[in-house]
Every structure is written in C-alpha cells, then in structure tokens.
Simulated scan of single mutants.
Amino acid sequence: MLEHGGNLRDAARHYGREDWIDLSTGINPRGYPAPALPPDAWHRLPEPDPGLVAAACAWYGAPDLLPVAGTQAAIQALPRLRPPSRVTVSAPSYAEHAHAWGKHGHTLRLSSYAALASSIDDSDVVVVVNPNNPTGETVAPELLLDWATRLAARGGWLVVDEAFGDTAPGLSVAADGRQPGLIVLRSVGKFFGLAGLRLGFVAAQASTLQALAELLGPWTVSGPAQFVAKAALSDSAWQQATEARLAREGLRMRALLCEHGIEASGTPLFHWWAHSQPEAFHDHLARHGIWCRLFRDAARGIRLGLPPDEAAWRRLQTALHTWSNR
C-alpha cells in the first residue's frame, strides 16, 4: 500500500519516543466533539439515513449525494465502473487516484496542473484534486465545469476530489453534481476532524450514483458514523466558528514559516513547500517529536498540518528556529 500521513506507530518505532505532535496529515486537530451514541447505533444494521444525506446536501450545496466509507472507497471503486479508458490524473496530488486507475486496465497519464487543460480533449477521464493535496494548487470552478462538458460529450468523466474543499467553498462544483460527466468527492475527515469515521460523499448523476452504490454493496457506512456525521453536518454554529479559527491558524502557520525563510503554499489545514533536503528536515523535526509529511518523488518537499494547542505551536517554533540556525 502507498505511504500516507498519520503513521505515528512508524515514528515511535523508528525514533523511540511517544510524545508526538502529529502534523503529518491535513486533518483539523480540534475536530467535531462527537455526541454520545444511542444504543441502537451499535445493534441495528446501518440502513441509510435520509437525514444524514439531507444534512450533507445542505452543507456541501449538492443536489444529490451518496454516502461512502470515506472518499477512498469511491476512489478505489470508480475505475471499476468504466471500460479501459485514457485517464489523466493531476500530479503531484493524492497518490491513491493514480494508484487506483492504474490497477484496472486503464491507460494512465500524470499531468501538472499547468498542463491539465491540454489533456481534456485526448482523455476519457480526468481526475483533479481541488484544492490540491499536497501543493494547494486550485482550478477555477467555471473551468472545471467546461472540462466536464467537453468530456461528457464523448462519454467521459471529470472527477473532482474536494476532500479539502470545506475551507474554500467558492471553489466547489458540488452544486453542479447532476451535470453529465461530473463526479465530485467530499469528505468529513478533514475539516470536521473525523477521519476515523471513514465517511465521505459522492455527487454525480443519478445513474452513476446507482452504479457506484450497487458496486459497493449494502451497509457501507456504519451506524455510529452516520449518527456522528449527521450531528456535525447540522451544527452551523460549530462550522462557522471552525471556519474562522482555521482561517486564523492557517495565516499563523504561513507567518511562522515565513519567519524562518519558508515560502509555503497550501490551505488553512496544511502547508507545503519544495525542499532541497526534505529527508534531513523531516528527521530534524522528528527528533523534536514532531511528525511531518515527507514527499520524496515528484512533490519533493514537506507538508505540515496545524498544531493542536499552544504547547505544540511552541515546540514547532523551537524546531524551526534550530533548523534555520543550524
């Protein structure tokens, strides 16, 4: 399997310490406070809850949504719904997209964001992460909708992964989910800090959602996950306060990095920058008990998520200071 952030057991095994600050993911470190579960969440089969879908449609502005066991479930299933196709995936981006399409007989091509527009007319499927993970690059929604129209004219798809879209609602095309050829992925793991629920949503035409639901089978989302997510997606006061807090903390991280000569891009939830010595920087932070995300290949660099509290911010500041003054 591919390497991802959040692998603290690997960090502890390699460096022999337990007091880790995990900045290796882009997950909100102060996630939604899950309510107590009713007893039937555990002993009833998790039939679909229309209240969950209604709450998700309201939050994402989408006309229709299919709940799935994390967007990862949809990423792995979508390539199985098409015959062999010419597939272009934005790169560098979330590596599971290319990994999944490459395993099912499709012809895979990776494209930089700058070159994506030129790939539309000679692809059957184009996959875009917007905002991008890890670099934070974006594509304007009007351009995405134009690409979807051109692909749909040949029976093609535009897959837009908006897992980090909650902090950039103006970029979302989820409201256009019924447009032919458009498939949009959303996640409650990042903004809501509920990655452990394994819950995401897919917006698409009804026929695509039906085919995906049949492929994934029944009971794909647990009862506890549905209950907690419905509460989170309905809590407008928490959502508004979190939007404001993440915006402040994202600016704080950008300023802290700038103080130490680092020009980063990203979103309020994470920052990324190309680095000439990413392995050395990763090791340096690890020796301060800070686990960041190391990228070795096309996106050779470092990604940092947000610290959870003031003590973590101070430890990060100390680690950056000792790095820049080494």
Score class of each variant (00 low, 15 high):
Trp273Asp: 01
Ser236Gly: 11
Leu216Gly: 02
Val127Ala: 01
Asn7Met: 13
Thr71Leu: 06
Val126His: 01
Arg245Ala: 11
Asp64Gln: 14
Thr220Asn: 12
His104Ser: 10
Gln179Pro: 05
Glu310Lys: 11
Leu246Glu: 06
Leu158Gly: 03
Pro63Asp: 11
Val202Arg: 04
Leu216Met: 13
Val87Cys: 01
Ala114His: 07
Glu142Ser: 08
Arg9Cys: 07
His14Ile: 14
Arg13Val: 10
Gly170Asn: 10
Thr208Asp: 02
Trp20Val: 02
Ser234Thr: 09
Leu78Ser: 01
His321Asn: 13
Leu285Gln: 01
Gly102Arg: 03
Thr25Cys: 06
Ile262Tyr: 04
Asn132Ile: 07
Pro131Gln: 03
Pro29Tyr: 04
Trp101Thr: 00
Gly181Thr: 09
Asp309Asn: 14
Ala298Glu: 12
Ala232Leu: 04
Val89Pro: 00
Ser222His: 13
Trp272Lys: 01
Ala247Cys: 11
Pro308Glu: 15
Ala203Phe: 06
Arg44Met: 10
Glu18Leu: 11
Ala54Phe: 05
Pro141Phe: 00
Ser236Asp: 12
Ala34Met: 10
Ala298Tyr: 08
Ser236Arg: 14
Pro131Tyr: 00
Ala229Arg: 01
Leu306Gln: 06
Gly289Thr: 08
Glu47Leu: 13
Ala241Glu: 15
Ser222Gln: 14
Arg82Tyr: 06
Ala140His: 13
Gly200Val: 03
His275Ser: 14
Leu285Tyr: 01
Gly200Ala: 04
Pro131Asp: 02
Thr88Glu: 01
Ala206Trp: 08
Ile27Arg: 07
His275Asp: 15
Arg9Gly: 15
Ser123Gln: 08
His4Cys: 06
Pro50Asp: 03
Asp161Met: 05
Ala98Leu: 05
Leu110Lys: 11
Ala241Cys: 08
His97Val: 03
Thr167Leu: 10
Ser236Pro: 07
Leu216Pro: 00
Ala241Gln: 15
Ala312Val: 09
Leu110Ala: 09
Glu162His: 14
Pro29Trp: 03
Arg9Gln: 12
Val128Gln: 00
Asp121Gln: 14
Ala114Met: 10
Leu37Asp: 05
Pro92Trp: 02
His43Glu: 08
Leu66Gln: 00
Gln179Leu: 14
Pro131Ala: 03
Tyr94Ile: 10
Ser324Phe: 10
Ala163Ile: 06
Arg254Thr: 14
Pro63Asn: 11
Cys57Asp: 04
Lys103Cys: 09
Gln205Cys: 10
Gly189Ala: 10
Leu37Tyr: 07
Ala58Arg: 15
Leu316Pro: 00
Ser119Asp: 12
Gly16Ile: 06
Ser234Glu: 04
Pro38Asp: 03
Ala232Pro: 01
Glu3Trp: 11
Glu249Ile: 08
Trp147Lys: 07
Phe201Thr: 08
Trp238Glu: 02
Asp146Phe: 12
Asp10Cys: 09
Ala319Asn: 04
Ala100Phe: 02
Gly155Pro: 02
Thr107Val: 13
Ala174Lys: 03
Leu108Lys: 01
Gln226Tyr: 07
Glu162Gln: 12
Ala58Phe: 08
Leu116Ile: 07
Ala264Asp: 00
His271Lys: 14
